[in-house]
Simulated scan of single mutants.
Amino acid sequence: MTAAKAPTTLTWSGALQGARETIPFMPGLAAFGMAFGAAAGQKGLTLAEAALSSGLVFAGLAQMVALEGWTRSWTFSSLLALGLLTFTINLRHVLMAASLRPWLGQLPAWQSYGSLLLLADNNWAAAMRYRAEGGADAGYFVGAGAITWVLWVVSTAAGHLVGGGVPDPKAIGIDLVVPAFFIAMLLPNWRGRREAVGWGTAAATSLVASYVLPGWWFIAVGAVAGALVGGFTDERN
């Protein structure tokens, strides 16, 4: 606990360390990005549009979900529904950013808020482990996020080029990349059997909801159920 109170710094050496220690996640992230690029090509997006989506939006799961509802002809109701759904999916970023405040909040505003532009699931998870182990250099978070952003954009473009000509990406298992990636993200955060309660509840609830509710609302239902159960089963010291 004492190490976690060390003054925050932001250095190039920390950024390099974060980038280097995030490399093990890169194969899964590259496959995820290529899956999005291929799916974007199937939906009719150009290479530039797909790459700009990844570069400017930088929200993998939300981008995949948005593609499911992508259409050439938009109505106000369809835009509103898609906006609400992607907003719900990305609400987790509010909690993720809040968990970083005790650390990044010690930096000047232009550094802390600028760093949050690179917030993603994998660099957040890696940075939180680093911080829990006593790390104080916020460059770690920035470096991990920067390499994630670069690879996400590059792999999206590669997936569009390579997979755009595949008649049905699901036929070769591209749709399995997304759940496999997030499972790989979850496993390093396993802290004991108590985790299984919240995770299991989220999985079971979302599975049932997928058969009952239309569209992608099962994601929100599973997330809320898992968070509530996980909060009640969290260990207290």
Rank of each mutant, 00 (worst) to 15 (best):
A196L: 15
W216K: 15
E195Y: 09
A196K: 06
L107I: 00
F218R: 10
D121H: 02
A125T: 14
V94W: 05
P188W: 07
T201C: 06
G139C: 14
L176W: 15
G164L: 12
W110Y: 00
W149V: 01
G143I: 11
V178A: 13
A144N: 04
F218S: 09
G165F: 13
M128K: 04
V208F: 14
V162G: 02
A227R: 05
G165R: 11
L107F: 13
G230A: 05
G200W: 08
G145W: 06
L107P: 00
S155A: 14
L186Y: 06
G159N: 14
A146R: 04
F218L: 12
A202R: 12
R92H: 14
P179W: 10
K170C: 04
P188Y: 09
V212G: 00
W216F: 13
H160D: 13
A223E: 10
I219M: 02
A184K: 03
L228K: 01
A109I: 06
I174G: 08
L95N: 13
G163C: 11
P179L: 02
H93E: 04
A202V: 05
D175C: 14
G164P: 15
Y211I: 07
D137E: 00
T233D: 14
A120V: 07
L186G: 12
I174D: 00
Q111K: 12
F141T: 01
P102R: 08
G134K: 10
D175V: 03
G230F: 12
P108H: 04
H160W: 15
L118E: 05
M185P: 03
L207V: 12
N90R: 13
L187A: 08
W152D: 07
G134E: 09
W103R: 07
F141P: 06
Q106P: 03
P214G: 11
A127D: 07
G105D: 00
A158L: 15
W110I: 08
A98F: 09
R191S: 09
G230Y: 04
W152A: 03
Y113P: 00
V142C: 05
V166E: 05
R101D: 10
G145P: 12
Y113D: 14
I219W: 00
D121I: 12
